[in-house]
Design a protein around this nucleic acid. Structure first.
Lengths: 343, 343
DNA sequence: CTGAAAGCGCTTACAG
DNA sequence: CTGAAAGCGCTTACAG
């Protein structure tokens, strides 16, 4: 604790503490001489503004919180990384709060968390970002937040990826490989993104003049285990699908495990692919083909949007169309889990 | 923001704000009548103490920070969960700070982070917890911290697992299966735990009257890729080892991948096992045998130790010998990646 | 058992 | 361009 305060600086520099305050906040209306003098003393004394004093005076805490539960640990990990990067650059602290989506008292717990920490703003990760009673509470409390996920649903700003396009392109890729019996594992029905992705899958099949075989579309919940279970169902179908696309990688890994357990060769007898491109895709064997979602970029962007909003700053000029829309595109990453179907 | 303050409560209850302060801090020397009256008003008005005001007055911020880099994401995830659980119970906020161990300015970056957030205390995850220049800086700044990892090295309290015992037991398990050519992948040499684990491995072999084949002990760095690389070396040895024990699961997953790539059947032709029992062990095929480290418990314990230290509270009576020593034992979890060697 | 005063480190009006 | 006063919401001595 470098307990040198604004008062010490003021005394040493022979100015009022208000003037010191002006300098450290980069306000206008300070003469160059005064500013230089104050800066010199600040450096000499090693003064750092105590964020707590500022927080109390401004009634803004200077930190934000990440609220998440954990459907896909790899996803959260990358998102967190991007958010942290931005927070670090903007000198914001990041609080972590683990929730469980299923808790009946979730909204109340989060309300208590906010009261306890006084975080200025919140970043909401799906499925929390699609939970209307939570958003209602935040609106009522007048808490600033940003949602990770599709835009149209719910209130508040959001940053997300183009899920329907991702699924559309991945399905097209499988069609190009000449797959005909393509199965699809849905995400959690509570999450908007799941419906987006499903839409892209159906669209691609439709555009190719195929009809969707509804027995090959099964429910999943974005978790590893739900991928295992879905694959169990799909791989007992006759004819067996030659390719399975899962709405996220976490489930795709589950599908892969199920295939191995049944002695089905991947990709020779079954192509498997997912969406997200989380780190586990390159740890399992064979490495999974996936649509790369710029997860860290999305996290970074979400944090920046929130912080700028809190500080009343306008957003910087968007460098790309994606920065403007806050909807990011995915990129197909072909690895070893997909190939043309056996004849 | 429920902007009802201690002053509002005091006025409404007809007492001084100091008395209200006494009540909310559960201090002695308040008459039952007064306490009841104040409590009634608190509930009526929905008063919650503003942590910022308290923080400034007490010069303690009421949050702690988790400093980590990311050798094994699955490990960090579980640790974080335990820490968060404790923070939530103790009404502490948890800041997150991602560092990169290799950054030449790391110590300085962390110093800046502390100044910016005023976290009361820090939880240090390996390899940070073994970094002496970092510990020196924290000691100099008089920052309270707790280390995750072995005890003897470095200053400050620590919570860890019994790595040598874990490796000892796992090696014994492999010996019981009649493995003779057992290879070992070391962890990062900067981390104390790596040396512990190595010691346990050697001890078990020694106790069984075997000499260690030094060509079967190779360097790893606790990362997935280092596991892949180490396995590449080991699996080209003649005679090939029949079992590989990696110092953590993240590397064991890499070993498994390498075995698959070479067409080596696991476990029939090669047994593989690791230490930690992170979630990926049950996502890869076959599921990995591992030593379960109570990671979340360790995280919880570390947070509790730190928080009690900050609040000057004594630790609660230890319920188990492990709680007393703060060194936790592992448990062997046999899965599908180990079996007796082929004849 | 209770309270008036001063203070934590900063900022917001306001005045000059 | 600069500063004196009051205040953010709480706590720490101290006095009674």
């Amino acid at each position: 604790m470098s307990s040198v305060t604004i008062n010490d600086v003021a005394r040493q520099a022979g100015v009022s503490k208000k003037t010191v305050s002006r300098v450290i906040n980069n306000e206008a209306n300070v003469s160059v001489d005064t500013r230089d003098k104050v800066m010199a003393v600040i450096n000499e004394l090693g003064f750092k503004r105590n964020p707590l004093g500022m927080a109390l005076a401004k009634n803004r805490s200077l930190f934000i919180a990440l609220l998440a539960d954990n459907p896909s640990p790899g996803y959260l990990q990358k998102l967190q990384k991007g958010i942290l990067q931005c927070c670090s650059e903007e000198h914001m602290g990041l609080f972590l709060y683990d929730c469980s989506y299923r808790s009946p008292t979730l909204v109340h717990e989060i309300e208590e968390f906010i009261d306890n920490t006084l975080a200025d703003g919140l970043i909401l990760v799906p499925p929390l970002s699609d939970k209307q009673d939570l958003l209602d509470m935040l609106d009522r409390k007048n808490v600033c937040y940003i949602r990770i996920g599709p835009k149209d649903q719910g209130s508040g700003d959001s940053v997300g990826f183009n899920g329907s396009k991702a699924a559309f392109e991945m399905t097209n890729y499988l069609l190009q490989l000449q797959h005909t019996d393509i199965a699809f594992v849905l995400g959690h029905p509570d999450q908007q993104s799941s419906h987006r992705v499903e839409k892209g899958f159906r669209q691609a099949l439709h555009d190719a003049g195929k009809t969707v075989n509804e027995t090959l579309v099964v429910q999943g919940y974005y978790t590893y285990q739900s991928g295992v279970d879905a694959a169990g169902v799909l791989l007992s179908r006759t004819p067996r699908p030659t390719a399975i696309l899962a709405a996220n990688d976490e489930m795709a890994v589950g599908v892969l495990y199920a295939a191995h357990s049944l002695g089905i060769k991947v990709p020779e007898e079954l192509s498997i692919c997912g969406i997200d491109d989380i780190s586990i895709t390159t740890k399992v064997w064979p490495n999974l083909t996936s649509m790369r979602q710029p997860i860290a970029t999305i996290g970074y962007r979400a944090a920046l949007l929130l912080i700028n909003k809190l500080q009343g700053k306008p957003m910087p000029e968007p460098l790309t169309p994606e920065d403007q829309s806050n909807i990011y595109d995915c990129e197909l990453i072909v690895r070893d889990s997909t190939c043309p179907p056996a004849r």
